[in-house]
Design a binder for these strands. Structure first.
Lengths: 228, 228
DNA sequence: TCGACGTTTCGCCGCGCGGCGAAGCGTCCG
DNA sequence: CGGACGCTTCGCCGCGCGGCGAAACGTCGA
């Protein structure tokens, strides 16, 4: 049977079945931000008993979507890798409303700037990535996106010291709210961590939204990043 | 329950359950190339009875993944829109082998050039898109990617007349085999159709692979598109 | 060493799903 | 008009799954 597709029917069905339960879906979604969480917490988040959670977590682990790290009596689960997070984000594609019909005001913060598996996403992430490309500070190589020395210098000049990023590669990551690309991969994670460290971005107490600081917005503006 | 994610658990689970059957998955995968096919053909492709296929197609239709077009006694089904195709392609992310462990030789053609929902994908699609960006023939605007006049001229000069593309927008589409972007959206579809029309690309009798012609490769080479 | 904690395994129950053949409906052509 | 075709609906069957409480296991701290 001619299945000229990235996955064959059984692989696609297996992936689908791993997601096809609200309890498992809830636990995966909680982990999209890249954190590791103990089984009990995931059970509570999903609203099921520890026994049920345990069965579901095992299925997700056996299915390759989760990684496990035991620490004493705690079992910490996290997404297996960035590709799982990207897959979960990209599943929004088929469900996302048209761009003109945007999420409610409450989601504006998520749309503006958020953490997508430890790298910056949202309008700010997309604008930042576009600026790097427009100014030729980002080079598309065979191994991925690479920050060029001019870009390193520009960012350092704006107060974002970035040692050793020349060796890091980034990946284009589809932004579900903007429908354009932001910068993921190790480079994206490092740049985001640097912005958090420098205070350009601040995490909010709950959820994945990130709050750009006034100083951060100013510095990004000077780099040419515009939100609008 | 704090679900700061693009989809809530029920939406994700619903999507997952639509995919969680090899028969439904098979029918979706057959349609990834953008074609419309009658119910009977889809039943055969999935290896199930027409009665079973009918039930599955209804579920996919009700779930928003398929569109239906009746024509006489034939019921033609196709993917609801490009986002469904993109979702299916992107589901490969979590399952794709590492880049160094590539698919078998038989898939080399798919990797090289293929049709992803009516636009060019694969190594050639990625290289073509990269060239357009590197030469500043493609502009990232707020509505999407737009071919600039210099790009239109360059392509016309190479034998690819492109009337009225200034009004078309393209979208970055993640290429599952290359892990980089190729050009999708109406612009990508139009460029691909033009290449097929000009004979630069030829469809193969079966599957989604596209065969670049010698002349097409030569002209693309002159534009700066290199495959390697 | 023992009790508490976090988690997993076991056993059970009820429900939903995928498969089919037969019948029925709408379209088409001789 | 009637038979054939494409497809859907109906009724049936067997199987797998998600939920739980209780018991068991491994870890930890007093």
């Amino acid at each position: 049977m001619d299945e000229a597709a990235p996955l064959n029917r059984y692989q696609l069905a297996e992936l689908g079945s791993l997601l096809a339960e609200p309890a498992r879906a809830a636990m995966l979604l909680v982990l999209v931000d890249g954190t590791a969480r103990p089984a009990g917490e995931l059970a509570q988040a999903a609203g099921i008993s520890p026994a049920t959670a345990s069965a579901h977590l095992r299925r997700l682990f056996d299915g390759g979507l989760l990684a496990l790290q035991a620490q004493g009596r705690h079992r910490y689960y996290r997404l297996a890798d960035e590709r799982v997070a990207a897959m979960l984000e990209s599943l929004s594609l088929a469900r996302a409303p048209a761009l003109h019909a945007l999420p409610a005001k409450g989601d504006a913060q998520l749309r503006r700037a958020r953490c997508c598996y430890r790298h910056l996403a949202g309008a700010l992430g997309v604008a930042f990535c576009a600026t790097l490309l427009q100014r030729d500070w980002l080079h598309t190589g065979s191994r991925g996106l690479q920050l060029l020395p001019a870009g390193v210098d520009a960012l350092a000049g704006s107060g974002l010291p970035l040692p050793n990023v020349a060796k890091l590669y980034g990946r284009s990551c589809l932004d579900w709210t903007e429908r354009r690309m932001h910068l993921g991969g190790p480079l994206g994670v490092t740049l985001t961590a640097a912005m958090l460290e420098a205070g350009w971005l601040r995490p909010l107490p709950r959820g994945r939204a990130l709050q750009p600081s006034a100083d951060g917005l100013r510095r990004l503006g000077l780099l040419g990043v515009s939100l609008d």
